[in-house]
């Protein structure tokens, strides 16, 4: 039997092209394996071969999702794969979104199965889990070794057209797909068994997990913006020059509250970004590009807005856990309420 054909999608970082300064790298295709492809190839042994690797910069992909997907797909198609592997992207948000978008396009347009790897909080998971088998990984590349095994074995199964087990058995994130199977016991008996376990306080496994709709009602609009006090919050890591609170460049454990007193315009002397996930050059040159202090000050003077709240709040969104972000935001919201703020402009990078 000839070897199964695998195409691998990775970003500019894992291709060894460069970090954030190269994140605008346009899609390219290389013959054979690149970077993490080595480990996958090892796991495949003689059964499959990575025939090509498609590489794209994360920023380029996310700023041009539709055209970038199309370019990447045509590259993948040329190599006629039996299965496509994306990532793993761990908790890198833009990489996860890119992997997910590629997975969606591959499964819909080429009708080829896709295996990706991501940390459950990666935004790519919620957006694209329907389209790929996303193996649950650790939140950083430290988990590469552990991710490769399950990704490779699931990819082989898919390429061979073998039966795929439940999310738990195979280690992928539930896709919200229902599958019929013959159970050994009737539904009524299973339900009662489950209920009895629940009453006894024993562990049981539901057969139908309810989706979690984590949505918030939109707050009421501002009636008169010329009287409103506006506050600035950002996950793009804007901080005073020198990053006095040492907010981490990724996986932030804190947020900062910084005074805008006397600041009319941000410049390289009074502001910078602490964020590690994007090229900081533009923000460091002029932090107004991340938080628009200069124009809000003008609008305040011109009476277009009531006032600008005297502090801005900042953290770094890069790889920061949802639990931490929630905690920071709850504290920030309390502070905003106490200060009589009416509305918030929240910027993200």
């Amino acid at each position: 039997m000839s070897k199964l054909r695998v195409v691998h999608y990775i970003n500019q970082f894992y291709a060894g092209i460069g970090g954030e300064e190269k994140a605008d790298h346009k899609p390219e295709v290389r013959e054979g394996k690149v970077g993490p492809g080595m480990a996958f190839q090892q796991a495949f042994g003689d059964e499959a071969e990575i025939v090509a690797t498609v590489i794209c910069g994360d920023t380029y992909f996310n700023e041009n999702i539709e055209s970038a997907s199309a370019e990447v797909i045509s590259m993948i198609k040329q190599h006629n794969p039996d299965v496509v592997i994306c990532g793993p992207a761990f908790n890198a948000g833009r990489y996860g979104v890119a992997c997910g978008a590629v997975a969606k396009a591959v499964s819909e347009e080429l009708n080829v199965p896709v295996v990706a790897g991501m940390y459950p909080e990666n935004p790519g998971v919620d957006m694209y889990k329907k389209y790929a088998y996303i193996i649950e990984t650790a939140n950083s590349a430290v988990g590469m070794k552990k991710a490769v095994g399950p990704m490779a074995s699931l990819a082989l199964k898919l390429a061979k057209g073998e039966e795929i087990g439940s999310p738990k058995e195979e280690g992928y994130i539930a896709r919200g797909v229902r599958k019929n199977y013959f159970a050994s016991e009737r539904g009524a008996k299973r339900a009662v068994d489950m209920l009895i376990k629940k009453i006894k306080g024993e562990e049981f496994v539901t057969e139908f997990e309810m989706p979690v709709f984590d949505r918030v009602e939109p707050a009421k609009a501002i009636k008169d913006i010329t009287k409103a006090k506006i506050a600035i919050v950002s996950s793009g890591g804007p901080v005073p020059k020198g990053n006095p609170d040492h907010i981490e460049s990724s996986s932030a454990s804190k947020y900062g509250k910084y005074s805008l007193a006397g600041i009319e315009d941000l410049n390289p002397e009074n502001g910078q970004t602490a964020h590690g996930g994007y090229d900081p050059v533009y923000a460091n040159e002029d932090l107004d590009r991340v938080i628009p202090v200069d124009v809000l000050r003008e609008m305040e003077k011109a009476g277009e807005i009531g006032s600008l709240h005297e502090y801005w709040y900042s953290t770094v969104g890069n790889g920061t856990s949802v639990a931490n972000s929630k905690k920071f935001a709850a504290e920030i919201a309390k502070d905003l309420q106490a200060a009589g703020v009416d509305a918030v402009i929240l910027t993200s990078t």
């Binding site: 996310n62 919050v233 920030i332 309420q337």
Partner: peptide, 20 residues
């Protein structure tokens, strides 16, 4: 963060590049 702040009743406008 947007949700957590908005849940206290303050309207939040999210300015961001990756809308999805």
């Amino acid at each position: 963060m947007v949700k957590e702040i908005e849940s206290t009743g303050l309207p939040v406008v999210h300015m961001c590049t990756v809308v999805p």
